[in-house]
Design a protein around this nucleic acid. Structure first.
Lengths: 178, 178
DNA sequence: CCACATCCATACGCTACCGTACGGTCACCG
DNA sequence: CGGTGACCGTACGGTAGCGTATGGATGTGG
C-alpha cells in the first residue's frame, strides 16, 4: 500500500490523497478497520444463526475453503503481523476465531482440553490451506471438481471423530451452557 | 535482506559486499540455496532412515512442532513466494514435502485418495501452526509444559485413525511398494 | 623491492517513496 | 458578483536503498 502507486492507479495524484487522509498510516488504519468488520464479524455473525454446532462447523469449513486462494488479504495481513498497526488487529481477529472454534467443539460436547486441540488443528489447517492455496496455487492436490468437497468432508469427519452424542439417551453429558 | 543494513550490521560497507556478490539477487540466490539444502533435504534424509512409517510421521511432527516459532525463515519465504527468485524454490520444497507426507500415509496402507487427504490435512496444519506460532506468539493455547506434546499426540491419533494394520493377520492389503 | 591480486571504504548517481507548500479550479452562498 | 471552502495538481525536500567508480590497504610471488 504505497500512496503514489495508489494515486496513479486511481488516475489522480498525491495531492488529492493527502486531502482525504492525514498520512499513509491513516489509510492503513481505515483499511484494517474495514477488513476486520467485513471478514471476521460478518462471517461469525452469519454463522452464529445456525443452532447445531456440527452444522455450523461444516458451514464454516465449506464457506472458508471455497474462498481460499481468492482473497489474499488475510494471508497478507498475517504476514504483516509484525507491523505495529497490523499487529493488534490480526491478533484480535485470530484470537476471536480460535475462541469461536473452540466454542463450537465445546458445544458439540467435547471436554475443554479436547475441544481446544481439535479447534487448534482445525484452525491451523485452515490457515495453512489458505496460505498454500494463495501463495502456491496448484501445489495442493486439488485438481478440479469434487476433490475439495471430499477433502472438507474427510477433515470434518476426523475433527468430529468420537463426538459425544448431543442429547444422550442415557447418562451422557449435556453440552456446555456457554 | 537489504544490502546496506546487512553491511552495517557486519561492521563493514557496501563496497565490500559488492566485491563478494555481483548484486543483491546473487545474495538472495545463495541464501535460498543454503536454506533449501539445510532445512528440507536435511530433515527428509534424517527421517528416511526410520523404516516404520507411523514412527516416521511421529518423528516428523515432533521435530517440526518443536521448532515452530523459532525459525522464521520458512514462514517468511512462503510469504515471499511471489518473488521470482523465491517462487521456484519454495514451490519445489513444498511440493516435495507434500509428496513425502503422502508417501508416508500410502506406506502405512491408506488408499491413495485417503493418503492424499490426510497428508494435505497434516501439512496444512503444520504450515498454519508454524505461521501462527511465528507471527502471533501466544495466541495458540499452548501455555507451557506438556500441552504441545498432547496436541501432537492427538493430531497423530486423528491422522492415523482407521489405519489399516500393516501386516494384516488375514486378508488385509499390503503397503504399497513405492 | 615491485607488480599484482585481493579485499575494503568513500563518494556519487539513480529510483521509489513519504510528506509538505502552494497555487489553481469550481461550486455554492450571501 | 465577490468570497469561501472543498478538492486537486505540481513542485519540492528528505530518506532508504541499489549499484558503480575509484582509490586505498594488505599480502604474496618473482
Amino acid at each position: 500500500m504505497a500512496v503514489e502507486p495508489i494515486a496513479a492507479r486511481l488516475g489522480t495524484t498525491k495531492g488529492s490523497f493527502y486531502w482525504h487522509f492525514a498520512n499513509r498510516d491513516a489509510l492503513v488504519v481505515a483499511a484494517l478497520e474495514l477488513w476486520e468488520r467485513r471478514f471476521t464479524e460478518a462471517t461469525i455473525t452469519a454463522l452464529a444463526a445456525e443452532p447445531d454446532p456440527a452444522a455450523r462447523l461444516r458451514m464454516l469449513f465449506t464457506q472458508v475453503s471455497g474462498s481460499a486462494g481468492q482473497n489474499a488479504a488475510g494471508v497478507n495481513l498475517l504476514a504483516a503481523a509484525a507491523h505495529e498497526l497490523v499487529a493488534p488487529v490480526v491478533r484480535r481477529v485470530v484470537q476471536r476465531r480460535i475462541d469461536f472454534t473452540i466454542g463450537i467443539f465445546e458445544e458439540i460436547g467435547f471436554p475443554l482440553a479436547v475441544a481446544v486441540r481439535r479447534a487448534m488443528l482445525g484452525y491451523a489447517a485452515y490457515v495453512g490451506h489458505y496460505e498454500l492455496a494463495t501463495r502456491l496455487p496448484g501445489v495442493l492436490p486439488l485438481d478440479d471438481g469434487g476433490q475439495l468437497a471430499d477433502y472438507v468432508d474427510s477433515v470434518l469427519e476426523l475433527l468430529l471423530h468420537d463426538a459425544p452424542t448431543r442429547w444422550p439417551p442415557s447418562g451422557g453429558r449435556l453440552p456446555a451452557a456457554h
